[in-house]
Design a protein around this nucleic acid. Sequence first.
DNA 1: TTATTATTCACCACTTTTCCCCACCAGGAG
DNA 2: CTCCTGGTGGGGAAAAGTGGTGAATAATAA
Lengths: 149, 149
Amino acid sequence: MALSIGRYDYSLDPKNRLSVPPKYRETLAQEKGRSFYLTSGMEGCLYLFLPSQWEKLLADDLKMFSLPDKEQERAFKRKFFSEAVEVEPDAQGRILVPQYLKEHAGLRFDVLVQGAGNRAEVWDAKRWTDYEKKMVAPAYKKIGKSLEI
Amino acid sequence: MALSIGRYDYSLDPKNRLSVPPKYRETLAQEKGRSFYLTSGMEGCLYLFLPSQWEKLLADDLKMFSLPDKEQERAFKRKFFSEAVEVEPDAQGRILVPQYLKEHAGLRFDVLVQGAGNRAEVWDAKRWTDYEKKMVAPAYKKIGKSLEI
DNA sequence: TTATTATTCACCACTTTTCCCCACCAGGAG
DNA sequence: CTCCTGGTGGGGAAAAGTGGTGAATAATAA
């Protein structure tokens, strides 16, 4: 399965359109579906999945949906499915970001699209730099002691 | 089978007509039946099924409803099925919400139609935000920690 | 039964939003 | 320089959301 890597700078235009890196679009063209799956992510970003990545997520990770407490399970599913959308790039390779996801990620004008392995992530530029300073750098230093690579 | 995802804002008009998202209507058009199935749901919302989703519910021998207490199970099934209606969208893509279901979900003017996997759900806007604060956020926090995403 | 009132539903109409397409500009390669 | 690719902006056609009217049907009263 295709791995999402790399970092790309884009701008979100007044119509909430966001360019997707050509490499991702190429990969998309080789897959069955024609749309990405966009949804809210942790730490205030958005997750962007290829169809194959999305399928895998549903098949593997979400087994944990089955919990003893069905009430909580419903609550989690509601958030998960309601915030996800299918987004098909236009002829220029741009996807449309729904208003509620734009707000979730605090997207303004400068936006980052970056690979994160089994998905890509969409970040507001400022939010990313803040997050990197506060979380990524310290964590990198700390967990380095127990990582093999 | 079609997975219901995404979030859409609509208004319930004075005649209790409610728009259905175009994507759901497209899917409906590709299925055998021409009607959705609408009934009362848990936590004060309404469930909206595509024909295929509804069929699956019945085909799985109704195991979704299974409870330790069989009398309670019967009681719940009775409510679920007696309150279910077939609703066919009109030329503008709106369905008619029966008065008793409107009351069950406390629908006022601002209404949400959102995907929940094996169904879509109809929520009063205010009721959803309250539910999200009280139930969704805690569940997400709890379950999210163990998820890889 | 008939007349009258209420309700439903198909159709029409208006406004806003969406989205498809074209155009422009910048940077890099040939 | 010229061609090509990729990012960005905008205009206009089409679709979507919403409200309303009137005919057909049902319900009720005389």
